[in-house]
Design a protein around this nucleic acid. Structure first.
Lengths: 198, 198
DNA sequence: TTTTGAACTTTCATTAAAAAAAGTCAAAAG
DNA sequence: CTTTTGACTTTTTTTAATGAAAGTTCAAAA
């Protein structure tokens, strides 16, 4: 059926995108990998952008599901967020080209806003859930969950940008940065946590 | 004397750089503004980069002096940082092209590292002084001043990047962003403050 | 319904020539 | 001796033209 065919395309495209980035991957190459023609690929996806979007959303979904698992495993608020940040670093190392490309395309004004919004919503829902549970079990003060979650996410992704900006611009991955980013993110998270814990 | 002549050059160059950015300002134009020849300008500055550096350092010094004044005026830690962040936003609106250019040049690999280091050192010294005083008067816990100051500065400049990245890339200023940046920076600062206050 | 070959259109890479800007220097001016 | 300059060279940026590559479309075949 159609859905399964699309899933194959996404899986195949993800490999190329993750390795070479969006701009260095052609529709022809993606089609070749699947032993179909470019025209056939266009039967399933009207353009490259929508394929890119589906690939991004697919990865985001995987990450989100894994984060849900981490949350369900339980633990202190700080421990859970720490696990999530570590996992995101791992994902970033795995899909770094894609991250760089994604950021660059977004910067260039490509219509990825909707996708970014979905990812943001997922991120917010995860953090909000962690904070809400923290309040429920008395670990955290009775804070404004939405507001703190948004600020924490801004801080985390701001630090990501701060350390990655040069690489994003160059379009070259730099895995060395990841431990530094994680460290800075953890330090900031701990400081914020200290202010909201009971 | 030489010093005064250089100061005139810096003042004049600052106007052009602040308005059009580094790349859209030529040495010829700067010379013209001063009613001297380009060759004469090169008598005082060996190249464009060193003039750029002096302009950046001169503005940074002004900002730093003003922040010292704010600190000396006294007040709560949060009030002082709030004033500093507001002042930085004002400076950013005034010198936005310069900020954008500076970031872009840095990204492109221009040798502005030394200058950035000086600015960082000044920023750190300000925040460290605020935190130290806060501890001394019992407003803050006995935290690791250097560490917290660095993290706070990372968070603040990360948020700046996060909101500005598209504009930095385009090279176009966008003053609308400034209130948003300030808001995010204040929210993050308050959260961190809550964790270090007594 | 799915697939394809053969188009078309847009974007990208390359090149060469011209223009603009950066940077140099010997000599003039004070 | 310091400062200034005009004329010069070198680098960088722009422009325009070309061909190639990639994105996209579509009528017809499977």
């Amino acid at each position: 059926m159609k859905a399964s065919r699309k899933e194959l395309i996404i899986a195949s495209a993800t490999k190329r995108f993750a390795h070479f980035g969006f701009s260095k991957t052609t529709m022809h190459e993606i089609a070749e990998d699947l032993h179909i023609t470019k025209a056939n690929l266009y039967y399933y996806y009207p353009d490259k952008l929508s394929l890119m979007k589906d690939v991004i959303l697919s990865i985001s979904e995987k990450v989100h599901l894994h984060e849900k698992e981490i949350i369900e495993e339980g633990g202190s608020v700080l421990a859970i967020i720490s696990k999530i940040l570590s996992h995101r670093r791992e994902m970033n190392i795995k899909y770094c080209m894609l991250q760089l490309s994604e950021n660059l395309e977004m910067i260039k004004g490509l219509e990825l806003e909707e996708v970014i919004q979905v990812i943001n919503a997922r991120d917010e829902s995860s953090i909000e859930q962690i904070l809400s549970t923290g309040i429920a079990v008395g670990e955290l003060q009775n804070i404004d969950v939405k507001d703190v979650a948004r600020t924490l996410l801004d801080v985390i992704s701001g630090l990501n940008f701060l350390c990655n900006i040069a690489d994003i611009f160059k379009g070259l991955p730099n895995p060395n940065n990841d431990s530094l980013i994680l460290e800075k993110q953890m330090k900031a998270t701990v400081l914020i946590y200290n202010g909201i814990k009971n």
